[in-house]
């Protein structure tokens, strides 16, 4: 039952010019070099340390690896991480 609204959304995104993150409630991730990573539409911090940040998303997790991580700003829907970013993983559950 959960599947057909999702497939409808996909079809909607494909056939209109609406941005996918708005329609499908997906995270929008902006990376500036290795310096900053800016994640919108996250669902909370799961783990945070100097070289790892785990964020919960609507579906699954987001794992970011690197060095000297500092959470520059955190708001209910967005996060700005500073440091040396090396890897970004999407982890399905």
């Amino acid at each position: 039952m959960q599947k057909w609204p999702n497939s409808f959304k996909k079809w909607f995104v494909n056939h209109t010019d609406m941005p996918a993150d708005v329609v499908m409630d997906l995270p929008r991730i902006t990376i500036i070099g290795q310096l900053h990573i800016y994640i919108e539409n996250h669902k909370g911090v799961l783990a945070f340390s100097n070289n790892e940040l785990r964020l919960s998303l609507k579906h699954g997790h987001l794992q970011i690896k690197g060095d000297n991580f500092v959470l520059k700003n955190i708001l209910p829907e967005e996060i700005l991480l500073e440091g040396l970013i090396k890897q970004v993983f999407f982890i399905d559950e």
Binding site: G44, N50, F69, L71, L75
Partner: peptide
């Protein structure tokens, strides 16, 4: 992390978080 999440939820401005 729990503390950070709750702060964000309650509208407390928090920044420059470092482990």
């Amino acid at each position: 992390e729990q503390f950070i999440n709750l702060c964000v939820k309650n509208g407390i401005t928090i920044w420059d978080i470092k482990r």
